[in-house]
Amino acid sequence: MALRLKSLTLASFLIPSNRNDWDRHLSAKHNRILIVDDHQDICASMRDILDDVGYEVVVTGNANDALEQVDLTPFDVVLLDYQMPDMNGAALLRIIKQKQKAVTAFLITAYAGSTGAQDALNIGATAVLQKPINVVELLGYLADAERA
């Protein structure tokens, strides 16, 4: 469930609906995506899904490791968990945005209605997704980000 989408275009809804469309979709050059979540199983599942559709995926279990990754190589998209041990997702996004202003960011949280979610939108998150996320919706957002 997305709380709010700031710059949604029609492309978001043009998600391939069959295998052939997916194949064409996968043939394109895909963005680099950073997933940050302290829940190891969520990171693993998300990585497999995005890897399967051709994205280049890096996962970290905490904010500090995420910042190290960002410093190493820029990312096109970051998917950030909100509640993490060393820093919340909104605070992490603020730092990442200082380093990479153009990065497309999504906050993934158990509480979409929280003030933290609103903070993330104010900082520049494209959307806040509530767990359990709608994967098709997320892929739509990622496709949209790729076309932007």
Binding site: R19, H39, D41, S45, M46, I49, K131, V136
Partner: peptide, 17 residues
Amino acid sequence: NPLNAIKTSAYYLLNAK
């Protein structure tokens, strides 16, 4: 959180190429 892991894994099992 565990629901998210379940849902994403289920998606993978249903859709992964």
